[in-house]
Design a protein around this nucleic acid. Structure first.
Length: 290
DNA sequence: TCCCAGGTCCTGA
DNA sequence: TCAGGACATGGG
């Protein structure tokens, strides 16, 4: 892997297991938008970044070498995905799913943003989730900059959402989730340290803590643990994962809890990665629907 | 009009 | 512990 800085761009050559489409469209993040040229623009650590890819060359626009640590951490660039794919390739189904979603990386997202984003995901569609998050950012976040003719705002801080009236959060189309979002923001102000320390705690400890929030159940808690707290031994079960699992692995009437147990036993410490490959595979190919 | 979405909460067995 | 209905919102 070679890193070059040029004209406010960071260019990484010979990158392995990195595919922008698969990374941004596999449902783990909601703030990246595809540009007309096929690149993606999003907000990370309060910075607007554009990512484009040509084979094994990835270009991060609007970024300097001083900020390399931001993308290194966010895109998990130090992790060897060859090893992960090897561990997860336990059967022909997984081999197919990995082949299909090759280049997926599990991003290291901010805990606070991930908590609120997945609370919004409950009983919601991905385009709508993105819209609500965008509305919240425009209304309560800070203006960052204009990029390619579009205005970008930071994700609102806990303070900004704690101060927001519930009816203004409802105006962002958050629906019945609005009071839960406000409650979470108010709690976060006092429990910030506990939350940012969960990545150092056990999976079970994190799960139990997160589920004390109104609006965070098993599925959402597992997504938060996986996508922002480096807990990879978890297997969040949503409608798509339920479908693909019931179609390819277990009986039709298997409960979500049993599916999760089955998968966590099968994939162990790599359950989260397996789940992402399966989710993307199921959703893109409509596995189990109809 | 009805069904459904990266579910959760509440109620009643 | 578990099944079943309610819950905002918008697209198909």
């Amino acid at each position: 892997m070679k890193i070059i800085e040029k004209d406010n761009m960071l260019i990484i050559e010979d990158i392995k297991d990195f595919n922008t489409t698969h990374i941004f469209d596999c449902g783990q993040c909601f703030r990246w938008n595809k540009e007309e040229d096929g690149s993606y623009t999003g907000v990370v650590s309060g910075k607007v970044i554009n990512v484009s890819q040509l084979g094994t060359k990835v270009i991060f626009d609007n970024l300097t070498l001083d900020d390399y640590h931001i993308v290194k951490d966010y895109f998990d660039l130090d992790t060897d995905y060859e090893k992960i794919k090897e561990k997860v390739s336990t059967d022909d189904i997984m081999k197919k799913a990995i082949d299909f979603g090759c280049g997926i990386r599990i991003l290291n997202q901010d805990e606070w943003e991930t908590m609120i984003s997945f609370m919004i995901s409950a009983n919601n569609r991905i385009p709508m989730i993105k819209k609500v998050i965008e509305n919240l950012s425009c209304k309560f976040g800070n203006f960052i900059t204009s990029y390619r003719g579009r205005d970008y705002y930071s994700f609102p801080t806990p303070e900004q959402l704690a101060e927001a009236p519930v009816d203004k959060i409802i105006e962002c189309k958050a629906g019945f989730r609005a009071p839960r979002i406000k409650d979470a923001a108010e709690r976060f102000l006092n429990e910030r340290d506990t939350i940012y320390d969960l990545k150092n705690k056990s999976y079970q400890e994190g799960l139990d803590y997160l589920k004390t929030y109104s609006g965070i159940g098993d599925k959402v808690a597992n997504c938060i643990l996986l996508f922002s707290m480096k807990q990879f031994d978890t297997f969040p079960v949503d409608v798509w994962v339920r479908r693909v699992m019931q179609t390819l692995y277990v009986d039709k009437d298997t409960s979500d809890k049993e599916i999760r147990r089955f998968a966590e036993e099968k994939f162990g410490d790599f359950s989260g990665y397996a789940q992402q490959y399966l989710f993307y595979y199921a959703r893109e190919l409509n596995v189990g629907k109809d």
